[in-house]
């Protein structure tokens, strides 16, 4: 089919042919053309890093974190994405073998915590099995799984599952022994940044992160500073300098 496609496209013009071929490649790689149902996840300028400038749903995203603080930042960023993806009626599964997520805090990121189903397991192997099973269920919006290590083969299984069901998967890798190669569509690393004071008042400001898109299939990796403000992502432009003066709000 693609051959005839090619023949048809060649006489037109080179740029068009390239674009068409790129589309074909995307389709073969499992990017379904989202028929006008692209979800606005509110990532703003980051969207240009993605193919077709839309956040890839129906794909598995991988997040690396090396310590608890980063894991908290990562879960915050993921929760921000989920709040946009889930909308008011979506359902998501949170599968983990060592969950420290505090459900009521999800409300801060605009998610009703009761729309989450938590699956708390003993073994990592079961987490992967449960994720595989859950990603096949098209009624879910997203599946979040916490695992330390994931093999290429396992990640391929997850990718194949989501290509069928169009569920979005998030693999949170806390303290991964080595990042390795995976079949996930992207790899992110979220690190917390010092917050900006709000209206020059002392105290802790809005959560702010350095969002590193380390790898993205058919996209452009990059680094951004984001802040979670009033229920949405906001890009921050500032020189990386940390003010050391004590600013405390005590009441």
């Amino acid at each position: 089919m693609s051959l005839t496609h090619l023949k048809l496209m060649v006489p037109l013009n080179k740029a068009d042919a390239f674009a068409a071929l790129q589309m074909d490649i995307l389709r073969l790689q499992g990017f379904k053309s989202s028929k006008g149902s692209a979800v606005d996840v509110g990532l703003g300028p980051i969207l240009h890093a993605f193919p077709k400038a839309t956040f890839p749903v129906g794909a598995v995203h991988e997040f690396l974190a090396s310590q608890c603080e980063e894991a908290a930042a990562t879960s915050g960023f993921v929760a921000g994405l989920l709040s946009a993806l889930m909308g008011p009626f979506g359902t998501a599964l949170w599968i983990s073998a060592s969950r420290t997520l505090f459900p009521p805090a999800l409300k801060t990121f605009g998610i009703q915590p009761d729309r989450f189903v938590f699956v708390d397991l003993q073994k990592e192997k079961d987490v992967l099995w449960a994720m595989d099973e859950a990603l096949k269920c098209g009624a879910l919006t997203a599946v979040v799984g916490e695992v330390h290590d994931i093999s290429f083969k396992a990640s391929r299984r997850l990718q194949l599952a989501v290509e069928q069901s169009q569920v979005t998967g998030f693999v949170l890798r806390n303290n991964a022994r080595k990042p390795g190669t995976t079949a996930c569509v992207s790899r992110w690393q979220i690190t917390p940044l010092p917050s900006d004071p709000v209206d020059d008042l002392p105290g802790v400001g809005f959560p702010q992160w350095k969002v590193e898109l380390l790898r993205i299939r058919n996209g452009k990796p990059g680094v951004w500073d984001l802040q979670w403000t009033n229920g949405r992502f906001q890009q921050v432009y500032k020189p990386h300098s940390v003010s050391h003066e004590q600013s405390k709000k005590v009441g």
Partner: peptide, 14 residues
């Protein structure tokens, strides 16, 4: 309703 007026941490030690 889920309360959102007091900030709570996303990761809570058991």
């Amino acid at each position: 309703l889920w309360r959102a007026d007091k900030l709570r941490p996303l990761q809570l030690l058991s």
